[in-house]
């Protein structure tokens, strides 16, 4: 009896220590977020008068910053969504097909092609900025394709295609790691059952890829959504401005409106959070390698 209680007490002590450490870590990681959130709800006087993590003082609580930020970012949010959603889906899809061809089918020279894909992962954005701008000014989609839509959104289309192309190598590598674990005999069985390479992809590989699609979609969407460099360089038309550029412009030239910037940062980050929530469960499966 006494043994039991001492064991319990020991357990309790270690539990308490564990929770204390965990709570400390939670506070450490959440402090910047909390400070940002608090600042976003303060008036200009409010954030000048208080420390960042303190709640808004009486009379200094306001939604104004959120409202202004949303108004100034709304075009950017729509533009980003129009650019990032197709880029994410396309690069994941192409990555999946490429990985299938490079992993589950066998043909001469595939190692060389795979090496090109892997090399593609490591090309730094900065290294291609100049050729990329030259490329798009040469291609000049708006002048070549006579649709008003293309002309209006030329910057976004260029950006979207660039992100798709840039995303394919890393998506291919992610998919390839997953497809390498797929039972080879199963694919051979499907071949004997009379399925063509494309049918095997459509009816066997694709349905089994849901978890890894979740991983790539989350990863790729976050990458594309958060990109600032390509967006600044490739998009000149202000009506095609994406949210990261718009957020950058919330920074005033004379007065730092921290409340506006914080609210804007939360609004700009919200879509990536939503994507995590939507695909979270599948993401966990994909990361755990659950087939």
């Amino acid at each position: 009896m006494s043994d039991d209680s001492s064991v319990l007490a020991g357990l309790d002590r270690s539990r308490i220590a564990l929770y204390a450490v965990l709570l400390g870590m939670v506070a450490f990681y959440l402090a910047p977020l909390e400070s940002g959130l608090m600042t976003a709800f303060k008036t200009t006087d409010g954030f000048r008068a208080t420390t960042p993590f303190a709640p808004p003082p009486a009379g200094e609580f306001t939604f104004d910053a959120w409202q202004v930020a949303f108004e100034r970012l709304s075009t950017g949010l729509t533009n980003s969504a129009m650019m990032a959603i197709p880029a994410t889906i396309l690069s994941a899809f192409f990555g999946s097909i490429a990985a299938y061809g490079l992993t589950n089918l066998s043909w001469r020279g595939q190692i060389g092609v795979l090496a090109l894909f892997v090399a593609g992962v490591f090309i730094p954005y900065q290294a291609v900025l100049v050729p990329l701008t030259q490329f798009w000014s040469f291609v000049d989609l708006g002048a070549r394709i006579p649709f008003a839509f293309v002309d209006d959104y030329q910057g976004l289309i260029n950006l979207s295609i660039t992100h798709t192309a840039y995303g394919i190598p890393i998506c291919t590598v992610l998919f390839r790691a997953y497809y390498a674990t797929i039972d080879e005999e199963m694919i051979e069985a499907a071949r004997l059952d009379g399925a063509s390479a494309m049918t095997i992809y459509r009816r066997i590989i694709l349905p089994l890829s849901v978890p890894i699609f979740a991983v790539t979609l989350i990863y790729q969407f976050t990458q594309v959504w958060n990109d600032l460099l390509f967006a600044i360089v490739l998009v000149s038309d202000p009506s095609n401005r994406v949210v990261t550029v718009a957020l950058n412009q919330l920074q005033g030239s004379f007065v730092q409106q921290y409340n506006l910037q914080m609210a804007g940062a939360f609004i700009a980050a919200l879509p990536t959070l939503i994507v995590y929530v939507l695909f979270g469960e599948q993401f966990a499966k994909g990361v755990a390698g659950n087939t």
Partner: peptide, 12 residues
């Protein structure tokens, strides 16, 4: 038709 050692059934 072939029967494989791992059975090679389509899991989905």
């Amino acid at each position: 038709a072939m029967v494989f050692q791992s059975y090679a059934l389509y899991p989905h």
